[in-house]
């Protein structure tokens, strides 16, 4: 009923179809979904909120120095989507070693200067607070 040719053509068509949908599924699974969440950086000194900086729409990174009541200083740099401490006068420099943070999982802490930088998700356009990044039990 079917010639060799139509059979070969059907095989090629089916293989092509299967390959295409598998590729589409793989791409869909591997590509990151949605745009990264926007965050607001809250900088606390001695437990008090001293600065809140939205980390969206920062065309070029800038840095500034925060001085603590005890005279210690931390140089903070803000980049688009991340924040970190460039240098500090504390002995261990742990805050510098924590690098730049991009999400709310771990705050940057400088114990000697009592400085904490924490990211919180920015409220989206509807004003609703966004979902947490991660929940652990």
């Amino acid at each position: 009923m079917h010639t060799e040719k139509t059979q070969k053509r059907a095989a090629v068509a089916i293989s092509g179809f299967l390959f295409t949908i598998c590729l589409c599924s793989l791409l869909f699974l591997l590509l990151p979904s949605g745009k990264p969440a926007a965050y607001i950086a809250d900088i606390y000194q001695d437990g008090n909120l001293i600065m809140s900086i939205p980390l969206e729409d920062i065309p070029e990174s800038r840095s500034f120095t925060v001085e603590s009541a005890g005279g210690g200083t931390n140089r903070i740099e803000i980049r688009s989507g991340s924040i970190g401490i460039l240098s500090a006068d504390c002995p261990d420099k742990l805050c510098v070693k924590q690098g730049f943070i991009k999400d709310s999982r771990l705050p940057i802490t400088c114990l000697p200067n009592k400085l904490v930088i924490r990211l919180r998700p920015a409220p989206d356009s509807s004003g609703e607070p966004q979902e947490p990044d991660i929940i652990t039990y």
Binding site: H2, T6, Q7, A10, A11, I14, S15, L18, I21
Partner: peptide
């Protein structure tokens, strides 16, 4: 349908279409 189109050859293609 696929089995008929392929003249009962290449059963793995038939299986793949069936699974899908």
């Amino acid at each position: 349908l696929v089995m008929k189109l392929l003249c009962k050859r290449m059963v793995f293609l038939t299986g793949a279409m069936g699974g899908l």
